[in-house]
């Protein structure tokens, strides 16, 4: 399982109720269910991924986070997880507010467009960055609203969303982001993980 999921799993206490939005093949869900006795649900748009989740015995709903989160009552999950998908929505702001309505807390991970390799790619090659975390070309990327870790932090602050924990990931290294090192982390982390609440 990738390091990102291990870090997310550590943020969640045992026996909680969790919704994984964009749960893909259910890898994180399965881990949480088996290792932390989590009452886990998934929402996934891809039919083939939904089938993979069903084959793992996971409860998953085929649906679109931009339309289908509204069916869940307020604060009906302890945590709502959104892994590397916020940038792919037509309206990320709306999705984020729905995550925070449905979940008591939300865990959101962001591929960092401020990562130095991304910056270098654009600076020296002059073409849209293609990296391990951003593997697609400009013409076929699902990502509509790329942001940097700094962008995300500024954005949630402006919406009065509380950040409980911010973590920077660079391959297997995990470190805490704070007020003083945000600029540095924004350069050296390829992924940010944020535990937030409204």
């Amino acid at each position: 399982m990738k390091n990102e999921f291990k870090v997310i799993a550590e943020l969640i206490e045992k026996n909680k109720k969790v919704l994984d939005v964009g749960c893909a093949d259910g890898t994180l869900m399965k881990f949480l269910k088996e290792n932390k006795n989590i009452n886990i649900r998934g929402l996934e748009i891809s039919k083939s991924k939904v089938q993979e989740c069903i084959a793992k015995g996971l409860t998953v709903i085929e649906g679109n986070a931009e339309k289908d989160l509204k069916q869940f009552p307020d604060k009906s999950f302890d945590y709502v997880v959104l892994s590397q998908t916020l940038q792919a929505f037509l309206n990320p702001e709306l999705v984020l507010s729905e995550l925070l309505r449905v979940g008591k807390k939300a865990i959101v991970t962001i591929p960092n467009f401020g990562y130095w390799k991304v910056r270098f790619h654009l600076l020296f090659k002059g073409t849209m960055p293609v990296t391990k975390a951003l593997p697609d070309e400009w013409y076929n990327t699902p990502n509509l609203h790329m942001c940097t870790l700094k962008d995300f932090v500024y954005f949630v602050r402006s919406r009065n969303i509380k950040i409980f924990k911010s973590l920077a990931l660079n391959n297997l290294d995990t470190s805490i982001i704070n007020e003083n090192n945000l600029g540095i982390k924004n350069l050296f982390a390829d992924l940010g993980i944020f535990l937030i609440e409204k």
Binding site: R41, K47, V50, V60, I61, E62, Q71, F72, P73
Partner: peptide, 18 residues
């Protein structure tokens, strides 16, 4: 039906088959 079940926190999965 899925929506009605989710609104009471029931354990419900859903798939639309092509």
């Amino acid at each position: 039906i899925v929506i009605a079940l989710n609104s009471i926190g029931a354990d419900v999965g859903f798939v639309e088959i092509e």
